[in-house]
Design a protein around this nucleic acid. Sequence first.
DNA 1: TTGTAAGCGTTATCAT
DNA 2: ATGATAACGCTTACAA
Lengths: 347, 347
Amino acid sequence: MPRVTMLDVARRAGVSQPLVSQVIGGSRSVRVSEATRDRILRVAEELGYRPNVIARALVHSRSYSIGIIIPDLYNPFFADVVAGAERVASDEGYAVMLANAAEVAAERHIEAFSARQIDGIIIDAVGAASLDLAVFAELNAVLIDEPSETQLSVMSDAPAAGRLAAEHLLALGHARLGLIGPASDLWAFRMRERGFMQFLRGAGLRVASSHLRRVSPTVEGGRAGMRALLAERDRPTAVFCTNDLMALGALKACIEAGVSVPREMSICGCDDIETARLVTPELTTVHVRAREMGARAARLLIRQVESGGGNGDDKPARERSAKPLGVRLVTRGSTAPPPPPPSGGDT
Amino acid sequence: MPRVTMLDVARRAGVSQPLVSQVIGGSRSVRVSEATRDRILRVAEELGYRPNVIARALVHSRSYSIGIIIPDLYNPFFADVVAGAERVASDEGYAVMLANAAEVAAERHIEAFSARQIDGIIIDAVGAASLDLAVFAELNAVLIDEPSETQLSVMSDAPAAGRLAAEHLLALGHARLGLIGPASDLWAFRMRERGFMQFLRGAGLRVASSHLRRVSPTVEGGRAGMRALLAERDRPTAVFCTNDLMALGALKACIEAGVSVPREMSICGCDDIETARLVTPELTTVHVRAREMGARAARLLIRQVESGGGNGDDKPARERSAKPLGVRLVTRGSTAPPPPPPSGGDT
DNA sequence: TTGTAAGCGTTATCAT
DNA sequence: ATGATAACGCTTACAA
């Protein structure tokens, strides 16, 4: 059975179809008599009329849906971002199309989105810098954790995250620090590292090159990184992992190696995903407001879309992007003062 | 700047617009001369033509996108399901719209989907039984873990999951068993429980009513459930949690209470999410192929959509649904034989 | 082999 | 206050 259209409603109500559109569209200047308006609405109700968003989209060249591209749905952090965005979008009447760049190249996803006249895209941590800038020209996009001259973005205060971790570890008395992070050039990772390194430098310390481990930003990566660190002759007493997944892997590696955390090794992560509180000891980490980032990104995007597409001619993107979202250290069980130096007899 | 349409291509190539449609549409019987075909394609390329899926959708009453509704994106299990579905859909040229029933009521999502002429919906564990059946009449839907007379579905072998858990625990020598599960009437949970209970009954055992804990299917729920169990006078020596999130929470509760797992308490979960291997001890659990379920559901749905919508008149849905996906026990560190009975002197 | 005409369900711009 | 009419970009008969 074909779906009920405005024309059906119109006929049944004895009016023209465009008039039905007027009434249903609603917000239009109220140039319709109460009587007919009521009649039309009643008939629409009776017939179970549902607006056809597709048809509307064709006319408006807008689809009332937004896309979101994330690198990895398995990372609860991104699940959080998506949940936040979805919440806002749904409230505003937008659907959200999900694209997992781990499965399919981001470019293909953008293609597909664009063919669907998606109104805008949220891109989180897929190395937007490397994406063809041309695609953005036609598209509304807001980047997450990737500053840009031309695009809107929402960011966490990544340098502060690194700084907080360093500060915490130094305050505990550590002097031999390690760092586990991905080789990728994603902004958030880079900045977390930089913040960490800079704070150390300010304290006259540095991370020995053998204590800097490049791994994939996953549990497995973190585990491998920590294993390598533990094998070092002069291993660090504390390690900062630039995301929680790696920190969790690092913790796992310590447990497997019989190295006590935090007594012999302190570990600090970043993100504060739920799992961080599940392991033993619970993970000290830097809380990043993933959900809020997703929500903000969605709000920003929708505002841009509704203010007439094409990323405006008014203020530069940079200005219109909100200031970075604050982060905060969450001290839990995986960090403690370093072990006393071996009580050997060299005095 | 307006987007390039078929009409633009047609004009530039000196042909009519429908002819361009013929050529671009492709699969149609090849009633176009090589020469013009090439020319058209070349011009399209030059102009950077991109098909407008929305317009196509309006004609076909199909949107080439599918929706997926899950109860909770935070549960990595569902992230897996989504990833599987997304992979398949994307390969087949479909976009996937995500809907998180935790944020917004499933009904509203279905409404929104339907307005967008979504071609079909995958519904996972949102109590499809409780949904208005009328909505399905117009929609292609495949249910995950929710058997139905009228709808296609893909299921895991949930009863077997419960059975395997029971079998494992009994084989270890446990006789006082506990069960932690949600009160919700979701099929998978119900069946896991039933499988568990039945196997026990077959062995002449049962779960004492005070050892059956109804909680929300989350980490917090599991933690609460286990706390209650630990407070019991005659507490169980082993507990089956009907998903891993609860099992993880239960484990956490034991650790907090200083109860050694698995020495004093065995815990078996269900799902086998990645986190299960992160905690210490690693979680014994029943592996369910989440990713594969998502992929299958997507394949089934797309096949149904392409075979002409409206859930066919041929075979009953039940038959066309694939047989349940097998599950398997993954024995890890959270289960062991029960502690010896207190060596008190009652002999 | 190709062009013409109609129509998918809306919205928007006019007259009336 | 309401109704024609055109338009959105495409597919699909049908005619040439």
